[in-house]
């Protein structure tokens, strides 16, 4: 299929309060560039699905909110007039139609002739490498196959944007990882605008051009996967995306001090400070000089690296991933050295 570019999607002041008074979404602004893959990431109930449904046209934003596709206001348009492709968690494939009929359905309601829509549907099926399944009934498909059919059906109408609502939540971990790569490659090849909702941080980091981390109906952070992972805006983002260590203490005279010791730090004085860093952003040193000293509690050898759990004198646990060449045993005292610029202070 020819590569194509989707529309730029802009949300302006879109909030959502349901009829029963529940506020699902605080008014927010967000834009998705044409061809970009934007991931909405957050725990359940954070409003990410509501946001997706507002873009789709399945929910309308509260008064004042506007949805724009390529600058044109589509707020008043219902979903059937917006030309978006949707992929649902349950796949929502039509059980009374076979695979080809499912994929061709969008073309059929657009009045495309039978021969032409079969040809177009087969083209999409071939692109998704499921052309062999065209005649199958939906009940004869595995979860991964259904997922591909759902994606093919959404793409067949050449939508302005494709919206995916936890599309892999029902699949097992191995298949999820495999399909993640496939979907990522596909979205890039088609350079179609995509909004992808998930609560799985690994999926978000792997798929997104940008990630929007959401919490309780608000945006906690917007950034590239690297930004969100390495420079989380706050403790919530840090804890939700990847493993984060947290040491609490003070900063005075250019040194951070906590129960494990002190280390030099270029920061203004703070009576209460928390040092946040990733397991791979620290190194362990034997025969620790003065500095941060922790006791090894557990060592998990993982082949290419080892995962070491350490404990401060006030029983705070810290996880560090180090190369496997360092021989470490529980009970040892180790020095903790942080890579410059790979931690944040809040």
């Amino acid at each position: 299929m020819k590569p194509r570019t989707g529309a730029a999607v802009t949300l302006a002041g879109c909030g959502k309060t349901f009829a029963d008074g529940t506020r699902a979404l605080a008014p927010l602004d967000l834009s998705v560039a044409a061809g970009e893959t934007l991931v909405l990431l957050g725990p359940s109930g954070c409003g990410k699905t509501t946001l997706l449904r507002i873009i789709a046209g399945l929910e309308s934003p509260d008064a004042g909110g506007r949805v724009l596709f390529d600058g044109a206001d589509v707020t008043a348009l219902p979903i059937e007039k917006r030309n978006v492709g949707m992929v649902f968690q349950s796949y929502a494939l039509f059980p009374n139609m076979n695979v080809r009929e499912n994929v061709a359905y969008g073309l059929r309601v657009r009045g495309v002739g039978k021969a032409e829509r079969s040809r177009l549907a087969d083209e999409v099926l071939e692109m998704m490498r499921i052309d062999a399944l065209a005649e199958r009934r939906i009940t004869q498909l595995s979860g991964g196959q259904r997922q591909r059919v759902a994606l093919a059906r959404a793409l067949a109408v050449r939508p302005k944007a494709i919206l995916l609502d936890e599309p892999m939540a029902a699949l097992d971990a191995a298949l999820r990882e495999h399909l993640r790569g496939e979907i990522d490659a596909l979205l890039r090849r088609l350079s179609i605008t995509a909004v992808y909702v998930t609560h799985d941080q690994a999926e978000a980091l792997a798929l997104g051009d940008r990630i929007v981390v959401m919490r309780e109906g608000e945006i906690a952070q917007v950034g590239t996967p690297r930004e969100v992972y390495e420079r989380p805006a706050d403790a919530f983002v840090a804890s939700f995306v990847g493993t984060t260590n947290r040491l609490e203490g003070t900063v005075r005279g250019g040194r951070f001090a906590c129960a494990a010791g002190t280390m030099a730090l270029d920061a203004p004085d703070m009576p209460k400070a928390a040092l946040l860093f990733r397991p791979e952003a620290a190194r362990l040193v034997l025969d620790p000089p003065a500095g941060l000293v922790l006791k090894v509690e557990q060592v998990q050898f993982q082949g290419a690296r080892q995962k070491v759990t350490l404990c401060t004198p006030d029983s705070v646990r810290v996880v560090v991933e180090t190369p496997p060449d360092l021989e470490i045993a529980p009970g040892m005292l180790m020095g903790l050295a942080l890579d410059p610029n790979r931690f944040s202070l809040v």
């Binding site: 789709a56 949707m86 929502a92 657009r110």
Partner: peptide, 19 residues
Amino acid sequence: ALEEAARSLGASRLAVLRD
């Protein structure tokens, strides 16, 4: 989600009911 999927593909209310 079945009806929402049909609508997202452009089906009118009547088509959703029928199909």
